[in-house]
Design a binder for these strands. Sequence first.
DNA 1: GTGGTCTAGACCACC
DNA 2: GTGGTCTAGACCACG
Lengths: 128, 128, 128, 128
Amino acid sequence: MRILLDDSNNEPNYLQIENQIKDMLYQGTLKPNDQLPSIRVLAQQLSVAIITIKRAYDDLEKEGIVELRQGKGCFIKAVNHKKLEEQLEDEFKQKVMELIALGTQRGLSKEKMASILRQGIDEEDNHG
Amino acid sequence: MRILLDDSNNEPNYLQIENQIKDMLYQGTLKPNDQLPSIRVLAQQLSVAIITIKRAYDDLEKEGIVELRQGKGCFIKAVNHKKLEEQLEDEFKQKVMELIALGTQRGLSKEKMASILRQGIDEEDNHG
Amino acid sequence: MRILLDDSNNEPNYLQIENQIKDMLYQGTLKPNDQLPSIRVLAQQLSVAIITIKRAYDDLEKEGIVELRQGKGCFIKAVNHKKLEEQLEDEFKQKVMELIALGTQRGLSKEKMASILRQGIDEEDNHG
Amino acid sequence: MRILLDDSNNEPNYLQIENQIKDMLYQGTLKPNDQLPSIRVLAQQLSVAIITIKRAYDDLEKEGIVELRQGKGCFIKAVNHKKLEEQLEDEFKQKVMELIALGTQRGLSKEKMASILRQGIDEEDNHG
DNA sequence: GTGGTCTAGACCACC
DNA sequence: GTGGTCTAGACCACG
């Protein structure tokens, strides 16, 4: 499992860890019942304090994504895959709506925003 | 000039102030050469510390949006209107690209993202 | 605000703190928008590490009970009082059902359990 | 003898084993002088470490429930059946009183608690 | 070996 | 002053 911490990123370490684990789950690199690296091992890998990994794993557990078993390790929880995908799309949609709300507040016309959004999609298509 | 601070918002007060002043400029409520309220007046009006307003005005000056004139006050800088609009669109576009990058990282297909973006625009259209 | 830590209690310190704050909220000693003691002050009061209080406050925030505002403090969130009471009763009822399930598993007859429960209520009544 | 371990349960393995053996004794599935499986057989059956079974059997011996006979095995101790039942009821009653104490601390009225307890009994009756 | 809790500091951002 | 993040250890319970 490959996690990279970017010190120049404003996101705190524990959040970068959480998000990258979520990414791997969403992408399918991690699957339900997979065991994550132990807190100590990951801490050493990333050169951070044990408690930083603990916090990331704790947060993921509260979100229902992993399960910490004392003396056993940290495991990806079995989840309904369809529900996961829906949740992912909902999150994305929410961010889209926030972005549109911001544009509106800044005085951008809806036509202009729509044009920029379409342009963004097209550019990404060409890169892909 | 009407600025509202939301205590429950994670955005720090000084940023909320900066952003709302920018919004008013983008929307046309504020125009070049308009004078902003004095630091202590605005501080009293919003019930925040003077240093908070000072920071907001300082930041806006660094961004070239306002001009602090010793003993006279804080004024909106004369800016090329076209440049302002371009800057606004560039910022928005950058956020769009970041959002698309996030979706890609989370494993969302480009088709799905395009669909969600279009859906977001349509819904906003209907509300408007 | 009076919080007492019991070292002989198996409950970790951060949980004892969380529960006692919940108790005060349920009992009405704490009300929405009340400010809790600062992390540093409470840590000194209870002679525990700052991070222990932080963890308790963080947990309460994730449960939607308090709100941490940077540079401002920790505040009881405004909540619908009726909803709070319902939640409280639901929690209690769940514990009752767990207890009854345990008794059943242990081979206690329902009549016996009912009798013990009634007896418990009566004794508590007499003490009150 | 059928023991099931639930990995997702926070209860440690050795306690789950102890409790399920107690349950079988309380329910009459196990009787005085019955022989329990050997440590290594049960360890293999449950796919746990030998030390885990050892701890469970040791604890049960300390509680006077089983007897470990060198080189012979683990046997349910002869106990006065009436005493067992009394102990069982006492444990249950103690849990009831703890629950009522918790409710009181959380500000639940005695009437409300009594109502919830009665309701719990009734629902269990209907299920049975 | 695993996770669970905790200490006693530190530096940062915000007010 | 406030909270937010982090370090580099420690001891405990569990397997």
